[in-house]
């Protein structure tokens, strides 16, 4: 590559489509590369994924390194770490970014330790220091009660980025970029074996994509409360999420947990019902456009995070609220 690579991102492809996080990373990478005067590269790993390279260029990449082999069909820690190590050594970027996703949570730390690179995980803000030209990576710490900005003297500098924290660029189909392959492939024989994958069936709208999310907490008291939420969610064409406490109690599937260790949602409307608004939980929904709260404890933290609130037992408030919402939607 002729000009230096400022930022390398790792793409994620889900059932043939680029994941939203990839577009968000490209938007952020373009901004950072602009401040450094270099180019944006993207590593595209998978099997049968080469088709999306053009889309990656349209969304902001100058180079796409395509590693399209059957062995990379599924994310497996060993193979992906080895391939990414090779990509980074070949392309020599200043900065390596990936999503703080199921993949990035595993791949990011392994790659950083293999490369001896400083890494900031789960970042919500990235910038370049004017004088040092180093990456400034800001992330929530102490369960969201504080924020920390990190820099590092290592080469490369690494960060994983929280979903929905960055803004994608509108696609420009006329953008020019090149696709390249790896000059040498690492050994992809691994000690780990993936023997099964068990998917929980999701009915209705996918939680991360839902325009309306109803979140239920410990105060619902059991799985019956969640049925009420589910009923209202259908009327609103939304989805139901839950706090860690509710999921750990088995009241709602763990795959619908919203929070620091679960899903990140940023719907137009988040309806928080019988949940206290712990930092752990808010880390997963604080990006929502409007948050409303129904809670019997007037001191609950969730009211500090909400635009509208009702103090009262959800068993009394929710049926009346749901009925009126349904009436209004029918009008």
């Amino acid at each position: 590559m002729a000009s230096p690579l400022s930022v390398l991102i790792t793409a994620e492809v889900n059932e043939g489509n680029l994941s939203p996080i990839t577009l968000e990373l490209l938007g952020s990478a373009r901004d950072l590369a602009g401040k450094l005067g270099g180019q944006v590269g993207c590593a595209l790993l998978g099997s049968g994924v080469a088709d999306v390279a053009q889309q990656i260029i349209a969304h902001g990449a100058d180079h796409v390194v395509v590693i399209d082999v059957p062995a990379l069909q599924d994310y497996l820690s060993d193979t992906y770490t080895s391939v990414m190590e090779t990509v980074v050594r070949q392309t020599d970027p200043e900065i390596v970014l990936m999503g703080h996703t199921s993949m990035g949570r595993d791949l990011g730390p392994r790659l950083a330790f293999r490369l001896g690179a400083g890494l900031a995980t789960d970042c919500i803000e990235l910038d370049i220091d004017n004088s040092s030209k180093q990456l400034l990576a800001t992330r929530p710490v102490y369960g969201g009660n504080a924020r920390a900005t990190f820099a590092t003297d290592t080469h490369p500098q690494m960060a994983t980025v929280r979903s929905k924290a960055m803004t994608p660029l509108p696609p420009d189909p006329s953008r020019q970029g090149e696709t390249v392959t790896l000059s040498t492939m690492p050994d992809l024989t691994v000690g780990l074996t993936l023997s099964d994958r068990v998917k929980e069936e999701v009915k209705g709208v996918k939680l991360e994509d839902a325009p309306v999310v109803l979140g239920g907490g410990r105060g619902l008291g059991g799985p019956e409360g969640f049925q009420q939420l589910d009923d209202l969610a259908r009327a609103l064409k939304g989805a139901v999420g839950a706090t860690r406490a509710a999921c750990d109690n088995g009241w709602w599937p763990a795959s619908s947990q919203v929070g620091l260790t679960g899903k990140i949602v940023a719907p137009d409307l988040y309806i928080a019902i019988a949940l206290s608004g712990s930092s752990q939980h808010m880390a997963g929904c604080s990006g929502s456009k409007t948050i409303i709260a129904i809670n019997k404890d007037p001191e609950a933290n969730i009211f500090k995070e909400s635009q509208y609130g009702v103090v009262g037992d959800y068993r009394q408030v929710l049926p009346a609220f749901a009925k009126r919402v349904k009436d209004l939607l029918e009008k």
Partner: peptide, 17 residues
């Protein structure tokens, strides 16, 4: 946070909608 109140908590639920 704009707190919605009513004669009863049920009414508050309706007014919230």
């Amino acid at each position: 946070c704009e707190m919605i109140e009513g004669e009863s908590v049920e009414e508050a639920g309706t007014l919230l909608a």
